[in-house]
Design a protein around this nucleic acid. Structure first.
Length: 641
RNA sequence: GCUGCUGUGGCUCAGGGGUAGAGCGCGUCCUUGGUAAGGACGAGGUCAUGGGUUCAAAUCCCAUCAGCAGCUCCA
């Protein structure tokens, strides 16, 4: 007999070799129907797993993330089986689950097409109908290698050769298909009810650029069709929110082939949004004790030799050019300029911290395949700042930056973001510059600042830049892809290289500590995420056009213009639509432009000296006076609603 | 950079070896309209660029450029 500890403190005894499935059945019909796998002493196991000793056990059901993960993993196997049936000789790479689905990598003798995906889906449906059981088998490593060699799976053999210390290798078989896999899996292929293959893309074997490129098929799976439908709708909603689509529709910005890839042209409406944000940004920085500076777009190459960028970053810089007798470079970073400003006079410890902020436009030669709308470009404006302080001021400054970053993000309605503390990798100290003492001090300061602010974060070991640790904040786009926005980096490198000092109380020179930081990231990337975040429907304080005045007849033009003038006088961004067309048409256009407020002007309004208000959120709200409207709008702007 | 797909008027897209189509937008005119599209007429494209195959290329082939999905990269 074995004792089984179940969730909720229940303990039961079963005969030895009772399976997880039998326990689930014993726990009741509803548990059994939804059971996918089990978890004994923290390890996931198949439903067919026999209990041989006392253990804790929980049944993994359909409605848990783990259950879904198992289903998707099995879906990946079923897909691989289908591919092997349709493409005999296909070599398998790996096939894991990912956040919203799964993928599997294959080496095939020809590229896959969209039609192939449909055929593979059809074959998968057949396999599901066959309801093949997933059978687990344990082999010694050399046996597994032999087996994978026999069925001509060189990638699997390669994987196995790295697993030689492991005692036993588990393989899973369903029908004629055999795969190396840790498991667990669903009981049989028939359990998969709802799946869809989404796309094909190239992927390097084991993620290494020098390895052969395999074909990766992405797909997703759910326990029922409704969930799958919901997910597909989510993808479509994401497409609607895509900043590249909205940017065009709302005439915010463009890229032109004759201008160059990754180089943004900001159209008037996009520029208005950017201007609102930048003004807000400047005000907030002055309030918090920053000074704002400007620096040139090009500088002598020697500056970048001193900074070390030429040595470490050259491949991402635009080529140097000669002017008079000197080499010049387009700047990829703003930091050297801040340093030169700092160094332009002798600084006492009494002057510190000095915070120099700059909306600095930098140019980086990003590889062609990585460009992505506004989110990854070749010319962009960092909302940069460099803080020069003493070691003892470091932690307090980091806290100040965290507060500012949080305030900025929350002002734009970003509630969800991920924080990472990027620290040195262990055992590769030569990759980093600076003393152990400095690193430890900086890592501690960053960590303590995060803890002080009670911010959840993950530690990214080995993710630090060569010159110092950092806190990186990732914000998400419509598809949930994370993009690095705000970042706080401690730097020991540049103060050394540029010999940046202050005079201490002892009258001697000391090295400053330098913090590089952004609180939005870059204007381009931030705007891109912002467009998707609001799906183009910007809150009043950001909207490029805040109010549109629509006339019913041409005779209302004078009154409409006077309404516009009185709103404009209060700083509102107002447009009139005086065209000779129907009111329905003008409203439709205003709606599609996502203007927060439309004012309809007809005989009634002219007579009463009022406006008829139509809000983006509520529609027709009836008439009110211009003054009452102003009060409402000003409040909404002030509170950034 | 790598793999695959795509590239037709300002936008969205159809077509496809015999020298171009729709809707929206734009212009002119008619209409004077009350909360998501009133009507008529018209202008606008060397079908991304450069080669090749062919009697003939926007259509087939190759290269280049750009975009998209992903991989790699992101100091």
């Amino acid at each position: 007999m074995v004792k089984v500890k179940l969730p909720g403190g229940i303990e039961k005894t079963y005969r030895e070799n009772t399976t997880v499935e039998q326990v689930a059945k014993d726990l009741g019909e509803s548990c059994y129907d939804k059971a996918v796998a089990g978890k004994t002493n923290g390890t996931l196991v198949d439903l067919s797993f026999p209990l041989t000793k006392d253990t804790s056990l929980s049944v993994i059901t359909e409605d848990t993330p783990e259950g879904l993960d198992i289903l998707r993993h099995s879906a990946a196997h079923i897909m691989a089986q289908a591919v092997q049936r349709l493409f005999p000789g296909a070599e398998l790479g790996i096939g894991p689950t990912i956040e919203n689905g799964f993928y599997y990598d294959f080496r095939l003798d020809r590229p896959l097409t969209q039609e192939d995906l449909e055929k593979i889906e059809a074959e998968m449906s057949k396999i599901i109908k066959e309801n093949l059981a997933f059978e687990r088998q344990l082999l010694r490593c050399e046996e597994a290698i032999k087996k994978m060699g026999e069925i001509r799976q060189p990638f699997k053999v390669e994987l196995l050769k790295d697993m030689e210390e492991e005692e036993a290798i588990s393989l899973y078989r369903q029908g004629e298909f055999l795969d190396l896999c840790r498991g667990p899996h669903i009981f049989a292929t028939g359990r998969l009810k709802a799946f869809k293959l989404l796309s094909v893309a190239g992927a390097y074997w084991r993620g290494k650029e020098t390895n052969p490129m395999l074909q990766r098929i992405y797909g997703t799976a759910f326990f029922n069709r409704e969930d799958l439908e919901r997910y597909i709708q989510l993808l479509e909603e994401a497409k609607r929110r895509d900043h590249r689509k909205l940017g065009k529709e709302l005439q915010l910005y463009s890229f032109r082939e004759d201008c160059g890839p990754g180089l943004v042209l900001w159209h008037p409406k996009g520029a208005r949004i950017r201007n609102v944000i930048e003004r807000f940004w400047c005000d907030e920085h002055y309030k918090r004790g920053y000074e704002i500076v400007y620096s040139p777009h090009i500088a002598k190459a020697s500056l970048w030799h001193t900074s070390g960028h030429w040595d470490f970053y050259r491949q991402s810089m635009f080529a140097p050019f000669e002017l008079e007798t000197s080499q010049y470079l387009v700047k990829p970073m703003n930091c050297p300029f801040a340093i030169l400003i700092f160094k332009s006079e002798t600084i006492s410890y009494r002057d510190l911290p000095i915070r120099l902020a700059e909306l600095g436009t930098v140019y980086r030669y990003e590889r062609s395949g990585v460009l992505h709308g506004l989110l990854r470009v070749r010319g962009f404006t960092q909302d940069d700042a460099h803080i020069f302080c003493t070691p003892s001021q470091l932690e307090g400054e980091v806290i100040g930056v965290l507060e500012l970053a949080q305030y900025m993000l929350s002002s734009f309605g970003f509630r969800e973001y991920e924080m990472e503390l990027a620290i040195r990798g262990k055992g590769e100290k030569d990759k980093y510059i600076g003393s152990d003492k400095n690193w430890e001090a900086a890592e501690t300061a960053l960590k303590r600042a995060l803890e002080y602010k009670h911010l959840p974060f993950v530690v990214g070991e080995g993710e630090a830049k060569f010159y110092g640790p950092s806190i990186d904040i990732r914000i998400k786009d419509a598809l949930g892809r994370g993009w690095q926005g705000p970042t706080i980096q401690v730097d020991f490198n540049l103060p050394e290289r540029f010999d940046v000092n202050y005079v201490g109380p002892d009258g001697k020179e000391h090295k400053v500590v330098m913090i590089h930081r952004t609180v939005l990231g870059a204007m381009e990337r931030f705007l891109g995420c912002l467009i998707e975040h609001y799906a183009g429907a910007f809150p009043l304080w950001i909207a490029p056009t805040q109010v549109k005045v629509l006339t019913i007849k041409e005779t209302h033009a004078d009154y409409a213009n006077s309404v516009k003038a009185s709103l404009q006088e209060k700083g509102l961004r107002v447009q009139c639509d005086l065209r000779n067309t129907t009111i329905g048409y003008k409203i439709r256009e205003g709606r599609m432009e996502k203007v927060p407020y439309l004012l309809i002007i007809g005989d009634k309004e002219v007579e009463q000296g009022s406006v008829s208000l139509r809000s983006r959120e509520k529609g027709d709200e009836g008439s009110l006076s211009t003054d009452a409207l102003l009060v409402r709008l000003e409040r909404e702007i002030k509170e950034k609603l």
